[in-house]
């Protein structure tokens, strides 16, 4: 999964997609995930990282990540593959 080119994300969690003109807001956890995607981390690596730092069960995290990646795809922020 790759973050689309030119997607701008600010410190406040404001995301702008220059290709579509849409803007979005994401929370701190979302920012962290997008940062890791930008670093080229895989879904598994992201999962392991969050599990090592945050108080969350693996099953819940996987469900939440699935939903988040689905929305990133819906909003054309990431490309699969």
């Amino acid at each position: 999964m790759k973050v689309n080119k030119n997607i701008a994300i600010s410190e406040s969690g404001f995301i702008f997609n220059p290709g579509t003109g849409d803007s979005f807001s994401t929370n701190a956890m979302g920012q962290e995930i997008i940062r890791m995607l930008n670093e080229g981390k895989t879904r598994e690596e992201i999962t392991d990282f969050i599990l090592s730092r945050y108080e969350v069960e693996k099953g819940i995290l996987e469900k939440d990540l699935g939903d988040y990646f689905f929305m990133l795809g819906t909003y054309h922020i990431v490309q699969n593959g």
């Binding site: 600010s10 406040s12 969690g13 404001f14 702008f16 803007s23 807001s25």
Partner: peptide, 11 residues
């Protein structure tokens, strides 16, 4: 500027 739109939205 987009910064302004961002600011009102996030703050």
């Amino acid at each position: 500027d987009l910064k302004e739109y961002e600011h009102i939205n996030t703050h």
